[in-house]
Design a protein around this nucleic acid. Sequence first.
DNA 1: GCAAAAGTGTTATCTCTACACCCATGC
DNA 2: GCATGGGTGTAGAGATAACACTTTTGC
Lengths: 239, 239
Amino acid sequence: MPGLPDAVVPVALAADLVVLTLVDGSLHVLAVRRAEAPFIGRWALPGGFVREGESAQRAAERELAEETGLGSRVHLEQLASYSDPARDPRGRVVSVAHLALVPADDAPPEAMRAGGDAAEVAWLPVTDDGSTAEPLAFDHARILRDGVERARAKLEYSALAAAFCEEEFTVGELRRVYDAVWGVRLDARNFHRKVTGARGFLDPVGTTTTRDGGRPAALFRRGPASTLNPPITRPPEPD
Amino acid sequence: MPGLPDAVVPVALAADLVVLTLVDGSLHVLAVRRAEAPFIGRWALPGGFVREGESAQRAAERELAEETGLGSRVHLEQLASYSDPARDPRGRVVSVAHLALVPADDAPPEAMRAGGDAAEVAWLPVTDDGSTAEPLAFDHARILRDGVERARAKLEYSALAAAFCEEEFTVGELRRVYDAVWGVRLDARNFHRKVTGARGFLDPVGTTTTRDGGRPAALFRRGPASTLNPPITRPPEPD
DNA sequence: GCAAAAGTGTTATCTCTACACCCATGC
DNA sequence: GCATGGGTGTAGAGATAACACTTTTGC
């Protein structure tokens, strides 16, 4: 590495993705089955190496587009980096993990990578403790747990939940995001009052839909506010 | 890189530190004056390259001990990673930034690195917008801003403020941490009620001190709770 | 005594929660 | 009509903000 001290150890930089969505009202994570060693045959988080001239953020955007075909309608943020020297048996690989949230039932894995390589891709259900039924490769279980925890925490005080919804959504759809991600049942009436009362949180579209059944519900878009004050409080765990 | 695809680009991994403390009741950040190119003579965040067999976390701990001489009595957490390919003119250097909080008036920079190399080290005042009067090297202004914002946000719902205090501290000292970090003046009476009423937040030591003047104040240690519910709310910005 | 900081009491106001209740649709 | 989900009203509990007031020290 020219210009740098001799002692500097070179590492490979990977961008991995925790892509969360709702399938049938419950939280799922995007996983790919590994086709090569190490951890051949195991589920892993999608990701890949950062390329020349690319930031980790850009690499994550590229991977996300490759895996899901989704473009702009996804929320993407950096999660954390994982640099344990033993985390990858092939050598020194540092992963910059990212958290992505995609709308419910968008981009079904069946349709994914139609023209790409033939790796198996699936939405795996996420359990209450933020893990999957089958073990994940590398330290991806840890990364997934961190990602789920971040998503859960950010729902409280941010407009993040709308990232799980279509562009136009009803208050009920938004509430079901909270129910699914937190594993709770919020009171529909109080939730409605709270989110419609928070300034800048929801932009009324003016039209209604009956796609959820029952009485027609007003449609909203995400408002300009990115933080939510007062926050939506997660019900306390029963002692 | 054996075992990895040929196309993988090697990068150097750095661990940088946003070390915050209170000096005379206002927020300061630890900075070192660069003795070499690039950015020679400029202030920069302390940090260094991650060594063989070391994680970024361990490198940050090592750097922190080297710079401040402080050991365990510091809070240290990962902040974020910065991987813009142009962020370091010497080549591809990815920084895993960490946030450290050290007790007020501990480890004065004059006493630092007594036996180490002669680089100038100082506590620079942090302005309300999370920057310093003099420009910082590399993208360190951005990193500092992110670190300050993280610290401000975490005070609301975590026990982080105690990391700025000595092991045993008074409620008034804790409140002055909030005042300094948020740039506000919280009501001493309501603050007292709130923090002493939050279960698990403060452990009473049983003794008192008059080091802050006035009536003797009870001493506390950090309690077992790491999150604070209900949170201490930051007063809204005037419109 | 006086200043300073700690700590307690009080009250109006706001917020939250748990409901009762009505509304507008599909079937 | 009936089920389903949307939306409004309301009362009690609890949290908050503002401030009067007492306590205990140093000087």
